[in-house]
Design a protein around this nucleic acid. Structure first.
Length: 901
DNA sequence: GCAAGGTC
């Protein structure tokens, strides 16, 4: 290695300026180091002398800022209308240095010209290895005689760095290839699908919810779409939840020492009769016997050391800060030297970290300084070595404070909050867990088991400093085994199951983390992208709902049968990338198979684009141009329009193949009857219906697609649209229609014509068909089991009754649970409001102010036998059951006026 | 105008 003692020049390149500085400081031992500017203002050059395995070296240490190059298509394919999007799966691509990286490139060129060696100090992960090859490409282009070496290090600490420079290795081509493949796949899939769906849908619909929709980009990406999928999936779960009533026996015992609440160990039962029988047994023999008293010491452990995802989740939970904003503030705190590098997967400290020194720095803080003092006092016993979260990216330590600050003048509230979180989290990590004494008492009443528990906190420990967490505890009276007592109350209470909550930002990050969508440094970007693209909205509680646009896109691909919105695609790609990085698959092989599959998928999606149209039509109006183009032929007359009484209604087929009978008075009259989606042919006959009026209403000869209707229906059918035809109605219900319903509530509807408003009033407000009203709607009466139908009917739901909790509107739906199958109920559509009421309880009420009172006990009591006077509590008071939510005995929880309070 | 990944 020696060249006769002559010094050689070595260009060292790190991934970011901070690493260049650390490496230079460590290697130079901070002696004789010179700093000079490079072409780029962020990336300085450090110079000093060093010796590698006896070879004297003039070391130049500089940096890049992440990737220097990006992948893009050749110019010919860059313009959106330059080619068929499918061609983007094969179009030539190349790596280019973007404008804002040109000065970094120039520094590398200039410095490498006069060096003999190039040592790569990029982060030791796949992306880092790929950046290393970008640097190699740039440097060897101007100096082909460079000797190229890779430094492998797992932490920026002295021993590691010195060891690594004395044991330089070869760069890992496999790692870099894995990233090359990832980049190319992301680009080709992203660009092709984005162009395809944007060009297809943007002009075809009035996407009024986004303001000016002319420049709208409907992007598709292998990370953003699965993220959207998580939001939509949960939203659907909430929408399709059908509340189910359940029953529980609760027992209270008040003594001189206080109150104990005993919970039924069966939890709750959905079978009312069964619950009543057990309850009656308890009431008849109400004496309770203590069967078990257990006392245990319990611990609540401090969190693991902080990594990026956890920082984002906690800042969202504790401060409602968006993950994107959190990372911006964290970056600023890092740049100013107050916290360590904020983009890290690592959640365990290396054994070599001097944790005490980090605590030491915080001693003078006015609020938590005294806690830090206690931590360092061996006598306090508060210290505990931090737990190991099991993740290590081998590049950065967990996020921790690096400099003391009582708060800086130029800090915003959020800087204060985030710094405080990082410090308190660190102090908590090196603290003992909280200790509690838990008492559990089990009793037996007539063979039924009940349990109560209480907790006393013995030592708060880390909870003293980690104010964001708490550990509730309540004291219960003392009980002895074998002791007997008579409960103060023993009640049969009702409750209803609730839907899961919408996804919070913390939930969403967890979903992404679990499925491997994005990296710690990019997850917040994907979430922000969904907001920027108008695919999702976030409410004040950081909970996400899809917009009509976001839901329509997912629905469209879902209806095609594609799981493009599921995380599987990314997981498969990730699996392949791993194979490439391990050398078990070649980059070419992975690119070839993956792109081939994705292209087939793309072609197929394009063939099935009607599914996207249909889904979009659920939420958005077709733009005028498209609608007119879409309906060809003037059609034959079926009847006189019963809405405007002026024009005829004619049979038409839309471009996407669906049949309808619509008024020729359009756009003044928008009366339309959509026919089942399973109709393949429809022709007007000269026969006239005998029962429907005003005559004549011509019968239509239908042909249905066999595969789309149940076996007990005929493919051929002579039908009538006047309202008498049950078969037509049933098939409409089963198959759905090709109808295009206007956007619901969220967007502006002010531009609708008067004619449309009038015609809407005469349609069924549930399914938008004419010929029947809401009460007779076939899709309400049946329990729709087909998920898409059900989803649609949810969206279709028109304001039917005002919600008595929040004043918004309720839609009518049908329960599909064991006890209430087929029973209609109204549920509130407002976000966050879970109000619902059974429709039959409204029917039986006297209307007006009497409605709410009749929701509960009385109407159900009539239905199932009188329940009101059967039970008597042990204290002699009559028990009729009570509301699970507020305790009021006048109603049950499903009718509770305060249930959302 | 399109992706996701680095980082400032």
């Amino acid at each position: 290695m020696s060249n006769g003692g002559r010094s050689i020049s070595v260009l060292n390149v790190a991934e970011k300026p901070s690493v260049a500085k650390s490496v230079a400081t460590i290697l130079s031992r901070n002696q004789g180091m010179r700093v000079r500017e490079g072409r780029s203002r962020y990336n300085k050059i450090f110079e000093f002398n060093y010796s590698i395995r006896g070879q004297p070296c003039r070391m130049l240490v500089t940096s890049v800022t992440g990737h220097v190059m990006e992948l893009d298509f050749d110019d010919r394919y860059r313009k959106w209308y330059s080619c068929d999007p499918a061609a983007l799966f094969e179009a030539p691509v190349r790596k280019i240095v973007p404008q804002d990286k040109l000065d970094i490139k120039r520094t590398l060129e200039e410095e490498s010209r006069r060096c003999q060696w190039l040592v790569l100090w990029l982060d030791c992960d796949r992306e880092g290895e790929n950046i290393a090859f970008e640097v190699i490409d740039i440097c060897t282009a101007v100096n082909q005689r460079l000797t190229i070496k890779r430094a492998r290090f797992s932490a920026l600490i002295e021993r590691e760095i010195h060891e690594s420079v004395q044991n330089l290795v070869e760069p890992n081509q496999w790692f870099a290839h894995a990233v090359d493949a990832r980049q190319e796949i992301d680009l080709r899939i992203g660009a092709s699908f984005t162009r395809f769906q944007t060009m297809l849908l943007r002009d075809a619909f009035v996407i009024d919810s986004v303001g000016d929709d002319r420049n709208l980009v409907l992007s598709y990406g292998p990370c953003q779409f699965p993220t959207l999928g998580f939001v939509v999936e949960r939203y659907w779960e909430v929408q399709s939840h059908e509340p189910e009533e359940f029953w529980a026996i609760n027992c209270n015992h008040r003594s001189e020492e206080g109150l104990a609440t005993f919970n039924w160990m069966r939890g709750h039962l959905f079978d009312y009769t069964c619950a009543v029988i057990i309850y009656e047994m308890c009431i008849q023999e109400p004496s309770a016997t203590v069967t078990k008293v257990r006392q245990q010491e319990k611990y609540k452990y401090p969190p693991h050391p902080l990594n990026t995802i956890e920082l984002e989740k906690r800042a969202s939970r504790y401060f409602r800060m968006s993950s994107e904003h959190t990372m911006k503030v964290a970056e600023e705190l890092y740049q100013a030297g107050f916290i360590s590098y904020p983009r890290t997967e690592t959640d365990s400290f290396s054994a070599r970290t001097n944790l005490q020194a980090i605590v030491q720095e915080q001693l003078e803080h006015p609020v938590w300084g005294s806690y830090a003092q206690q931590l360092l006092d061996p006598g306090s016993g508060l210290w505990r070595n931090p737990s190991n979260g099991g993740h290590d990216d081998k590049a950065h330590p967990p996020i921790h404070p690096t400099k003391f600050s009582p708060g800086e003048n130029n800090w915003s509230q959020d800087h204060h909050k985030l710094y405080e979180l990082v410090v308190r989290h660190f102090l908590a990590c090196v603290s003992q867990p909280a200790v509690g004494a838990e008492t559990t008492v089990e009793i037996d009443i007539a063979g039924e088991q009940f349990a109560a528990s209480g907790r006393v906190i013995i030592a708060k420990n880390y909870l003293d400093v980690y104010r964001f967490e708490s550990w509730g505890g309540s004291v219960i009276p003392t009980y002895l085994p074998g002791q007997q007592f008579v409960p103060t109350t023993l009640t049969l209470d009702s409750g209803v199951t609730r839907p899961p909550p919408l996804l919070s930002e913390a939930d969403l990050l967890s979903c992404m983390d679990k499925a491997g969508i994005g990296t710690d440094a990019t997850m917040h970007d994907h979430i922000k992208k969904l907001l920027d693209r108008f695919y999702v909205t976030k409410d004040q509680n950081t909970r996400f709902s899809p917009t009509n646009l976001g839901e329509a896109l997912v629905m469209g691909y879902d209806d095609m049968g594609y799981k493009l919105w599921k995380p599987n695609l990314r997981s498969m790609m990730e699996f392949d990338m791993k194979a490439v990085s391990e050398g078990s698959k070649s980059k070419t092989e992975v690119l070839q198979t993956c792109l081939q599959q994705m292209k087939a998928c793309f072609i197929d999606a394009r063939l099935n684009k009607e599914k996207l149209f249909e889904a979009m039509s659920v939420f958005f109006d077709r733009s005028n141009r498209s609608v007119r183009e879409d309906q060809h032929g003037t059609g034959e007359v079926v009847r006189l329009c019963q809405l405007c009484n002026q024009s005829n209604m004619v049979l038409k087929q839309s471009r996407d193949g669906n049949f309808m009978v619509s008024c020729l008075g359009y756009p003044l009259c928008r009366n339309v009857v959509w026919l089942p989606g399973s109709v393949s042919e429809a022709a007007i006959t000269s026969s006239v219906c005998n029962s429907c009026t005003p005559r004549p209403i011509h019968m239509i000869q239908f042909k249905f697609r066999r595969s789309e209707i149940p076996p007990n229906y005929n493919v051929d059918h002579l039908g009538c649209i006047g309202g008498c035809d049950d078969i037509l109605r049933q098939l409409t219900e089963i198959c759905g229609t090709g109808s295009r319903m206007p956007a619901r509530g969220r967007g502006s509807t002010q531009s609708q014509s008067t004619a449309q408003t009038i015609s809407r009033q005469q349609m069924c407000t549930n399914c938008r068909q004419t010929g029947h009203s809401l009460g007779d709607c076939p899709s309400v009466v049946s329990a729709a089991s087909h998920s898409r139908t059900r989803r649609r009917s949810t969206h279709d739901g028109e304001a039917s009754v005002p919600c008595s909790t929040c004043g918004a509107s309720c839609t009518v739906r049908t329960a599909n649970t064991a006890n209430n199958r087929g029973r209609k109920f109204y549920s509130c559509q407002a976000q966050g409001c879970n109000f619902f009421v059974w429709a039959d309880s409204l029917d039986s009420g006297t209307g007006g102010g009497g409605r709410r009172d009749s929701n509960g006990v009385s109407s159900r009591g009539r239905g199932r036998g009188s329940r009101g006077s059967t039970f008597v509590s042990v204290t002699g008071e009559p028990v009729t059951g009570r509301c699970f939510a507020c305790g009021d005995p006048s109603h049950f929880a499903n009718a509770c006026p305060n249930r959302n309070a």
